[in-house]
Design a binder for these strands. Sequence first.
DNA 1: GATTTCACGTA
DNA 2: CGTACGTGAAATCC
Length: 555
Amino acid sequence: MVFGPDVAALSGDGVELCGSPEQVRDRVSGLEDERHPRWTWWAAAGDGRALVAHGIRPQRCWDVAEAHRVLAGGWAAGADRAWAVAAGLDVEALPRPAGGDLFDLVTTDDAGDPDSAVRPDGYLRPEALEPTWLTGPERALSLARAALQTSSRQRELLAQGGPRPVGTATSESAAALLCIELELDGLPLDRSRAEELITAAAGERPRSEEHARQLRRERDAAVLAHAPGRESTDLRNPVQVRELLASVGVVVPDTRAWRLEPYRGVHPLVDALLAWRKAERIATTYGWTWLDTHVGPDDRLRGGWTACDGAAGRMTAQNGLHNLPTPLRPAVAAHPGHVLVRADLGQIEPRVLAAVSGDRAFAEATRAADLYAPVAQALGVERAVAKVAVLAAMYGQTSGAAGEALKDLQRTYPVAMAYLERAYAEGLAGRAVRTFGGRRVPMWQLPPGLPASAVGAATAARGRFARNAVIQGAAAELFKAWVATLRLAVRDLGAEVVLCLHDEVLLHVPEEAAGEVAHLVDEVLTASARRWTGSSAVQFVADTSVIARWSDAKA
DNA sequence: GATTTCACGTA
DNA sequence: CGTACGTGAAATCC
């Protein structure tokens, strides 16, 4: 489907239609009710949003942009690029949209049928990406056909990588649609509780600009009182703060919190500064302005969502949805008549490692509710040591106390460790890696002028990135497969997904459906994990609770 | 005005 | 020599 401002079109499966967006939307709605087809669109942010904004929430879709991101990696996924890759055309030679200069005027004489989205040379017309190009129904129809054609070529290309990448593309597509819903629905908030928490952390709501400045001065004064003679220091200027600290005998290379932590006892200024920083964070980033800007009159916090970041493919969110400080979390609360069902995946990354590497011994450890217990036993070390070693192996950490246990890990779980080493080596060499689900993760190339002395560190950083990407990326794939299925499974109960946080999901649920939704969360996880891994060898576990506020469950 | 650096929140 | 992300304030670049 293609939705423009004035025209829209539908093509495929014996249906071909173009007309006004209203007409096409009605038909989409009817078809969705009849047989919920897998709708194909260039990107959820365009056509998916056009439906969701009008109350149509399709079950299944194929998002050409997301499929392209799986296939090619990286973030760029415009229709022209996705079309070119699917068609096997050179993306380096992608025609550029007309800039309105003379050169463009001269070279547009071979443009072929002006109402076709495809040029005679096989590339998608770059101007067809602009909504303004959709001046008539023929053009919309042509663009819709092109989207459908792209999707079937993408399917073929993905299928060359085995059965999984096609599945990855469908769940990524669903995640992208969910992102639109998350953005429009928002996260339920208890406004008065939010106001209390902001007041406690950042002070009362400023009544004017002058009042705001005064409050700021008061906050600053509490710190500067510890440094007589240096009251003019700007606490927001790291250089000045460093000088301030030096004046009381605290000499540090930078003023980051973890660096200052050991000096808490040395001088009361340090303590005051660190407390000030926490308050300042809430005052500037999650304070009154944030509340007024991002929380609607319906007491919902809204921000943009993306289905995959540019690196390994985790979801991202804006406006604090992904980094709300813990002290503010009590403000996230179910609205009247509802509860929150919260679930987080326990020890997701090592479990994912067991699945993607196919290490049988490590998979055996996932049968335990606490994976580190059997690992510790196998290595003959304390649980804490086993945990640090496993995490160090996955993240490429070399400092710290993991050294000896890492050797034992190699010996006990050679298949899993080899999987990580392999990714590390690929990254080191600058070659792209693929996640278990088939997402290509491109590797950046080192800048040509890089001094020889810096090359080692730079390639090692790339190796660590690759090593982490195959784990983090695969975990993101499983998570999205889970949540995409959950989205549909709970829908008839009136429940909706309202937050996704890498390994954690929050659902807003009518009170009476709480028990059933909580049950479905676990059931769907087992089914999704089985489908994703292709077996039941690796167990995934969710910690699920029914709560009123986000903070009611342990973090 | 746009980009970079520092700092810090989350997983 | 653990990764990823988003945000704001100040400094820096153009």
